[in-house]
Design a binder for these strands. Structure first.
Length: 347
DNA sequence: AACTCGGGGCA
DNA sequence: TGCCCAGAGTT
């Protein structure tokens, strides 16, 4: 705790420890590094300073603010939770564990983090940092990426919980993991727990935390088309659940075996939107990695030929001017060639 | 209990 | 390149 007081970073969400701003930060910080979150957090709080503001916003606007941050279900769930609090709970965020965790997108980590930091409730957090620190401190053999890990580390974290100031205890443990007890080359010389650390004493910090082997991720070939018609281009909106739910994209899909990217592009656009396209012109190839697979996407300009849009898969579509594309939330893989479109079209 | 869900920082 | 990150929901 003393180490934390002297060494903690000055982060934007540490300025206001009310429930809402802490909640915003914890949702964004889920599986996302501090450095990445900072600009998103500042802009989000500026746009929606209070829960009521967020509840009144369109989902689409919230997704736009989340664009590039990933795990878009976080934004959808948080937005939904804000509306539940305003509509059903009188605008009061529950400050008890059961009531708060019941909200969509709030699991054990967020409930424990928000309530300990913003309401001094005695709940220990378990995140990647905490698991790493405790694993080394006690030479815990439970692999941190195993299903049983959360429960095991939660029990350990609770035994050490400092109930007089659980928020600082939790943040101190996480900060220690982020700054000192790092995944690679931990700085044991700077660690306040060094004397008590099992892994350091045995010189095996690089063997902890234990981790189960990961699977390799396959690569998928994708073809996407920028369909032009009367100076506008076609974009479609993905269904709200699943991968990249609710985001807009250029229509396309998987290139089947024995099929050329051009054929796949025309076929996928016809299947998804019902329209016929042709006169394909290669624009670029984009590489992008997701958690469970990688994609190689060939992007084509296409001309609209015939047919009316009848959606099969996407939940919406629009013909938009290239200058208006920035208004819609797109996946990163699409943003990678967005600027190129403008350059080519204007030429 | 296993699988799905983004994107970036970093060695 | 591969690893890992202030995890939660679904199956």
């Amino acid at each position: 705790m003393g180490w934390y007081r002297d060494n903690c970073r000055q982060l934007p969400w540490r300025r206001d420890t009310a429930l809402y701003p802490v909640w915003v930060s914890e949702v964004m910080l889920q599986q996302t590094q501090v450095k990445t979150v900072i600009p998103y957090y500042l802009k989000f709080m500026e746009t929606w300073p209070d829960l009521e503001d967020l509840a009144a916003a369109d989902l689409e606007t919230v997704l736009k603010a989340w664009e590039g941050l990933g795990y878009y279900a976080r934004a959808r769930n948080f937005h939904k939770a804000a509306r539940i609090v305003v509509r059903n709970l009188g605008g009061i965020i529950p400050d008890d564990y059961k009531g708060f965790k019941n909200l969509p997108g709030v699991g054990d980590y967020i409930a424990s983090a928000v309530l300990s930091i913003a309401a001094a409730k005695p709940h220990a957090v378990v995140d990647g940092n905490v698991k790493r620190v405790l694993s080394r401190l006690l030479c815990v053999e439970t692999p941190v990426n195993h299903s049983a890990a959360h429960k095991a580390y939660k029990a350990i974290a609770e035994t050490f919980l400092y109930e007089k100031d659980p928020g600082t205890y939790n943040q101190a443990l996480m900060e220690l993991g982020a700054l000192v007890c790092t995944p690679k080359r931990p700085d044991c010389a700077a660690c306040p727990l060094a004397e008590a650390c099992c892994a350091r004493e045995k010189q095996v910090t690089d063997l902890f935390p234990r981790r189960m082997a990961k699977k390799k991720v396959p690569t998928v070939h994708i073809a996407a088309g920028i369909v032009r018609k009367n100076g506008k281009v076609l974009i479609t909106r993905r269904k709200l659940d699943g991968l990249l739910g609710g985001l807009w994209e250029f229509p396309g899909g998987k290139v089947e075996p024995k099929e050329s990217p051009e054929q796949a592009c025309i076929r996928e656009i016809r299947e998804e939107t019902g329209i016929k396209t042709g006169n394909l012109q290669f624009l670029t190839r984009v590489f992008h990695a997701y958690t469970h697979f990688k994609i190689e996407m060939d992007v084509f300009f296409c001309d609209y030929i015939s047919g009316r849009v009848t959606l099969n898969g996407p939940i919406d579509h629009k013909w938009v001017h290239v200058d208006q594309l920035y208004q819609y939330p797109f996946p990163r893989a699409n943003l990678k060639f967005m600027e190129l479109i403008t350059i080519v079209v204007c030429k």
